[in-house]
């Protein structure tokens, strides 16, 4: 039982960067934009978060810098795809390549440095309850922020007027435009939000999970976050679940090895990817349901026709 609690704690740590990135991208896709530059924004957030935390000694400033950096990267994507109407798939890939290169360049002076990891909170009494305490009341503040983000986004999309407008734009941008909503404006705002979330997700890796900088520290987690968005059928609660499921598979395969169960390591390392594919198949095979959920205008260019 103790081990199970420990494993679940590990899952939460491993999944939190994915939660941030996936929730941000979910909002972007709900608005009808596909930003494949998630990995690039995450890795830029990772270096910004680490460098600023190290230089200022403040996590708050560091995380904020990561969010701003992610948003700036997203605004570049937004300018190209929303204003200049470039192809979203190509622009997103370019952003990833650019982000990986630029972060490595910026990070040159920061390899070999280290900061104290962000401390976990400890709430009197609550954190000491067996099982429930360690699972619910003794994480670092960003874990709670990621959960709050998921809840907040769910509420925003379902219950607010702006959320409704955002979804309408993702469903049918021409109609939304005809009613008088600013398609480009809303999409830019969604992109900035998504970029900020991705930046924080990257910074979670470089300031909390492993407070250090090495090139390519995100190691493909941005792509996983993209898969999680599809897995979630564009619903925040399911995105949260998806991130924890992926984190769970990653952690469990490590534990399986620790117990000495005889499966080749490379096959185990394939597991998270194979499970993601399997889940994608399961949720998308019902054609009616997926097309009900998928934003109809996803990745389609919007231009005002006269």
């Amino acid at each position: 039982m103790d081990l199970l609690v420990l494993i679940l704690q590990g899952v939460i740590v491993s999944a939190t960067s994915l939660v941030f990135a996936a929730i941000g991208e979910l909002v972007v896709e709900r608005a009808g934009v596909l930003n494949l530059g998630l990995e690039g924004m995450m890795v830029l957030g990772a270096i910004a978060g680490f460098a600023v935390t190290l230089d200022t000694g403040s996590y708050v400033v560091g995380i904020a810098a990561a969010a701003v950096t992610g948003a700036i990267a997203a605004s570049l994507f937004g300018f190209l795809t929303q204003i200049l109407l470039s192809n979203q798939v190509a622009t997103g890939l370019a952003l990833t390549i650019f982000g990986l290169g630029l972060s490595a360049l910026l990070g040159q002076g920061y390899s070999g440095e280290s900061t104290e990891p962000l401390a976990k909170i400890h709430i009197f009494f609550l954190s000491d309850i067996p099982i429930v305490g360690p699972l619910m009341f003794s994480h670092d503040p960003l874990v709670y922020l990621s959960l709050a983000l998921a809840v907040g986004v769910a509420w925003f999309l379902a219950k607010t007027r702006t959320g409704l407008i955002l979804r309408a734009i993702g469903e049918n941008h021409d109609a939304a435009h005809a009613i008088g909503y600013s398609v480009v404006g809303v999409r830019m705002a969604a992109l900035l939000f998504g970029g900020a979330c991705a930046g924080v997700g990257g910074a979670y890796l470089s300031t909390v999970q492993t407070p250090l900088w090495v090139e390519n520290i995100t190691a493909g987690r941005g792509w996983i976050a993209l898969a999680i968005v599809v897995f979630s059928a564009w619903r925040p609660g399911r995105a949260l679940l998806g991130a924890y499921l992926f984190g769970g598979v990653t952690i469990v395969q490590l534990h399986v090895q620790g117990f000495g169960i005889d499966i080749e390591a490379q096959y185990l390392s394939m597991l998270p990817y194979l499970v993601t594919i399997l889940v994608l198949v399961l949720i998308s095979h019902d054609k009616a349901r997926i097309s009900l959920n998928a934003p109809a205008c996803l990745a389609k260019p919007f231009f005002v026709s006269s």
């Binding site: 494993i7 590990g10 740590v13 491993s14 960067s17 890796l205 999970q209 492993t210 250090l212 090495v214 390519n216 520290i217 995100t218 190691a219 987690r221 990653t250 952690i251 490590l254 534990h255 090895q257 620790g258 390591a265 490379q266 390392s269």
Partner: peptide
Amino acid sequence: IIWVSTWVDPGKEADAAKA
């Protein structure tokens, strides 16, 4: 022994260490 199938992936190395 845990084989992580990578030389450098700090996140995964940390996960393995924690496991």
